[in-house]
């Protein structure tokens, strides 16, 4: 198990399998609001993967107004991630949507998740205490 410290952005707790996207993400336009599936060419091999109940890692968010609408729609359709880790910095629209929809967010973990977390690993995000625990898939 790996334990990282991270900055709490939106309080809460979430656990689930990791989806690790080593790039920026525009939630509006790159996540299907009805199904929670990643879409578009820019998401590479993760295209079609569903974020529902997962711990979603990405560098930072892109785009603006639409992001808040998209996060709120995704949450109300029951396909929201269990928590979000914004690795490089938190962006305002993503955080605004997560506050409104109660999705925990942490940012800037003290270890680089792209070196330590793989898609499919089990992750627990205790945002309130600023802790991210990773249980690699093979050891589970």
């Amino acid at each position: 198990m790996i334990e990282m410290k991270a900055k709490c952005i939106v309080k809460g707790y979430g656990e689930g399998e990791a989806i690790v996207l080593n790039q920026s993400l525009s939630i509006f336009g790159q996540i299907n609001m009805l199904t929670g599936e990643l879409m578009g060419h820019d998401v590479g091999e993760l295209r079609g993967k569903c974020v529902k109940g997962k711990i979603l890692f990405f560098t930072h968010g892109m785009a603006a107004s639409g992001t808040v609408i998209a996060v709120n729609e995704i949450a109300s359709n029951g396909v929201a991630p269990a928590a979000i880790v914004q690795v490089t910095y938190p962006d305002t629209p993503t955080v605004q949507g997560c506050i409104m929809s109660g999705i925990p967010v942490v940012s800037q973990p003290d270890m680089n998740p792209f070196d330590h977390v793989k898609t499919g690993d089990w992750v627990e995000v205790d945002s309130t205490r600023g802790i991210v625990r990773v249980i690699p898939k093979k050891n589970k």
Binding site: A64, S65, T67, V68, N72, D91, P93, Q96, G97
Partner: peptide
């Protein structure tokens, strides 16, 4: 509206972050 935030920040010198949707 990102185009409005950027117009008002830059052209008018008003102070706005990138805010979205219902927030």
């Amino acid at each position: 509206e990102s185009s409005n935030q950027t117009f008002m920040n830059s052209v008018l010198g008003v102070r706005s972050n990138r805010d979205g949707g219902q927030f």
